[in-house]
Amino acid sequence: MVDLTAQDMHMNQTSPVTAAKSEVKPRPKLRARRAVPSWAITVATIGLLIALWEYFGRDVNPIFGSYPSAIAAAGWDMLRTGELGAAMVQSLEPFVAGFVLALVFGVPLGLLLGRFRVFEAAFGILVTGGYAMPLVALVPLLVLWLGLGFKVKVAIIFLMCVFPIAINTWLGVKVVSKTLIEVGRAFVAPNMVILRRIVFPATLPYIMAGVKLAVGRGVVAMVIAEFFTAISGLGGIIINSATNFDTARMFVPIIVIMVLATLLNALVGVVERWIAPWQSEISARD
């Protein structure tokens, strides 16, 4: 099979015209022989961790720790009563709002920072600084400005997400090959068109890496917001269970949040392959 592919490529190179005219038939994806699929390895690791936790966790005082089957039972309970579902919705609403806002502001901000020297000199330092801002310390101030409700939660999540997105985009713009931009210039494209039609698509992989970072930070921001403003959602369950020393219940939202972040990251990966399919096809390993 390997030989066949090599020959095929060779043919493409020496006689491009015939290769172009001949019909390209879709063919089943090549797979390495008898290699263990990656997902199986992942599942095995997680299974092993859960088993170890279950085995050793059972001996621990239920106030100081918990173990998977107890957490699962608590989770099932909360799911049945509808408590978990309601909390998730409550958490996800500000998360989605803050995250979408961060995307809408962060990407253009990063594009402008990378492309225009004056803009970069004026605002670059604010973005770098903003990334390192100890947000938790600012929460009381934000509460004073925006109250305890939905708005302040959105603001906290936005502030945690916008900087990694902007910084990654900015970095991505900086490494766009000069010749690609010259293609735009050679066809007399105005600066803004070069930005939209060349720089933006070329930067997409970096933007997506920023989005993945932002998912992790955004989820943390979501919990922080629920701890320090009006107690609600998944973060609220964590706090309330902790104060009642109900450790098994406390772990349920923690696990849910981790699973959620992982799923969101996978979703970003899918979106990336959908809007930037050339990237995974070009890179050495997808």
Binding site: E182, R185, A186, V188
Partner: peptide, 18 residues
Amino acid sequence: GCGYDRGMVFQHAELLPW
């Protein structure tokens, strides 16, 4: 500057990969 009276063919084609 550049203009439509001149067309450039680059050394490595420089097609837009997307």
